[in-house]
Design a binder for these strands. Sequence first.
DNA 1: GTCTATAATTTGATAGAC
DNA 2: GTCTATCAAATTATAGAC
Lengths: 199, 199
Amino acid sequence: MYSKGVNAEERLIESTRALLWERGYVGTSPKAIQQRAGAGQGSMYHHFAGKHDLALTAIRRTAEELRAAAEARLSVPGTALGRVTAYLRRERDVLKGCPVGRLTQDPDVMADPALRAPVEETLAWLRARLAQVLEEGRAAGELDSRLDPPATAATIVAVLQGGYVLARASGTADPFDQAISGVLALLTLHAAEAARHRA
Amino acid sequence: MYSKGVNAEERLIESTRALLWERGYVGTSPKAIQQRAGAGQGSMYHHFAGKHDLALTAIRRTAEELRAAAEARLSVPGTALGRVTAYLRRERDVLKGCPVGRLTQDPDVMADPALRAPVEETLAWLRARLAQVLEEGRAAGELDSRLDPPATAATIVAVLQGGYVLARASGTADPFDQAISGVLALLTLHAAEAARHRA
DNA sequence: GTCTATAATTTGATAGAC
DNA sequence: GTCTATCAAATTATAGAC
């Protein structure tokens, strides 16, 4: 139940965002959305055409937030490895998983072009943005020149998404932290190799 | 619709396995299971106590199959990196995702101890098995001694699980292949480092 | 804007005939 | 074993009062 300090439309969007994160599109009913928002059916169907329309609004907002949060960590000054580390080590609700990546497992979301687009675009953007950071690190001689930025970026995002899966399976954040530590260790050796070549 | 060559019980299990993979537990109805299996309600409720019981049988079988498929690639003779590569590069239905990892996103599966157990055990086993292979590689001097087997194993399984997420988001197997290539490239440099230290 | 009917469909299961 | 009723509850809306 969200604060009545904001209007019903806003509460309905936030309620939907939370439920999509917890239960996905298929597992979320209009009734559950309304109850969590403290709004009736009439209110929901006044502001939105239905479950689909509401979910679209919610997904777009979630995707935008994720992108902004990532950009905030990746656009600061510092080494490429430092920025990637800051992004990977940022505080996360590990056991809840990624609110965007989660939607890729939802058949009704993936089957609908409108609902799917924000998911596809967000993860594509994230891979491209990380590849850019890695390329900067390579250009600066900080990372080994043999490192392939797009492939390594895909690996990093995959470790993140897969780390969530392992954490949820185990019921603890442990495997997530291990997976992140593991890939950062591999990247660090790459950086050390680059330093050795420069020497 | 499965071959009528096998009995209804078997067809119901396979139908459930396919639907859990495609739509998850929440997104799969008994009606859909019956239609795909070519069986009526009476048949389903004769062989199984209900959706939950049928799903439990299906999940256990899927988990066992995944484990056997992994063990087949990891237990052959060869270098650690070679066996890990064989496992990662094995043929996969990339766009369908992992039939076990997928279940971690299902709220009703994770909330039920019986349904969740096979998921938890399978992914824990996979991490431990990969850690064992990496440890063997380290002991043989094939991999860099600074490499942490459990963390690296978590990274490898995460890349796999996350690779599926990225592939589904993009609609192509491309990011999956990139993520696998990226992590293998990082591991290969580790192997090269180990060789340099031995020299 | 928000509420309370009302309703067609689907869900998940039971009962009992064959 | 398999089938066809039957059923209570949930789902996803629409209609119309306030």
